[in-house]
């Protein structure tokens, strides 16, 4: 019976791995082929005559496409980096307040913040666009970062709230008894202890921001702010799709999140599980 369960588990794990990895493999394989090879019938399951040409087209040279890729990569790093820093900063303060301080309406306010995560993203697109337009923030880094922060703050607050709530309150009480004020307690005592939670919150925020498409599409008008995800889409013609070039661009776009996810997997899992066990 046990062997049978183990066998089924193995099959399940294999299916999940295939489901997750085959599309990534196919993208990498296609990115290393010419259009003719990629569209050959029957399909080649291994890259025949592998070539780096698509990557060379995207990364080197003085043409429009390399320039767009380079600039949009810089944009996405700036936007995601800034959104992460601001989100983590604000979420830390909010989470600490919700977890440790007593004030009227705390529970209602906390659940109200958390409840916003249930709103479908698209419902806020037009109001946000209008607000950003009114304040002249369309096609600016500030506008895109603000929208990301507003989107990711509830989740970040929730993760950090769970983290702070799981820390023993005795440390904080000792600090207060010794004469430290709230911010000193937070900075000197709790933040060092909450560092893993902060790292995981930052990673999760960065990864989610990296994957955004529709919001930056609407809020950016040209290459001065368009992130990589939006620029990759523009490589596609209406009737002709350069599939190998698109796959190469897609592979480049997933390198940063893939490296972060693999290198800091432990933090991400811990962050999402924070507060689930006592």
């Amino acid at each position: 019976m046990k062997r049978r369960t183990s066998g089924l588990r193995g099959v399940g794990v294999a299916m999940i791995l295939l489901w997750s990895l085959v599309p990534i493999y196919w993208a990498i394989k296609t990115s290393l082929q010419t259009e003719a090879d990629a569209r050959a019938k029957p399909a080649h399951y291994l890259p025949t005559n592998a070539t780096w040409q698509n990557y060379a087209t995207l990364l080197s040279g003085d043409g429009d496409v390399p320039a767009q890729i380079r600039r949009s990569t810089l944009n996405i790093v700036i936007e995601c980096g800034a959104a992460t820093v601001v989100t983590v900063l604000l979420a830390t303060l909010a989470a600490y307040a919700f977890a440790r301080m007593q004030f009227r309406g705390k529970t209602v306010l906390f659940y109200a913040v958390i409840a916003t995560m249930a709103f479908p993203a698209y419902t806020t697109l037009i109001p946000l666009y209008r607000i950003m337009s009114t304040f002249g923030l369309v096609n600016t880094y500030t506008g895109i970062v603000l929208v990301y922060v507003s989107g990711f703050l509830p989740l970040a607050t929730w993760i950090l709230h769970n983290y702070f709530a799981s820390l023993p309150s005795g440390i904080e009480e000792a600090g207060l008894v010794d004469g430290a004020h709230r911010l000193q307690v937070l900075w000197h005592l709790l933040l060092p202890l909450a560092r893993p939670g902060i790292i995981s919150t930052a990673l999760i925020t960065f990864l989610f921001a990296w994957g955004q498409f529709l919001f930056p599409l609407v809020l950016s008008s040209d290459l001065s702010t368009q992130p990589l995800t939006v620029v990759i889409a523009s490589l596609q013609g209406r009737h002709v799709v350069p599939s190998t070039l698109l796959n190469a661009a897609g592979v480049l776009a997933i390198i940063v999140p893939a490296v972060l996810a693999l290198a800091f997997n432990r933090y991400i899992v811990n962050g999402l599980l924070a507060g689930s066990t006592k």
Binding site: T124, S150, G151, W210, G211, A253, P257
Partner: peptide, 10 residues
């Protein structure tokens, strides 16, 4: 708020 996406390939 923004919907969380798993993939970058929007």
């Amino acid at each position: 708020m923004l919907r969380i996406r798993r993939r970058t390939g929007t």
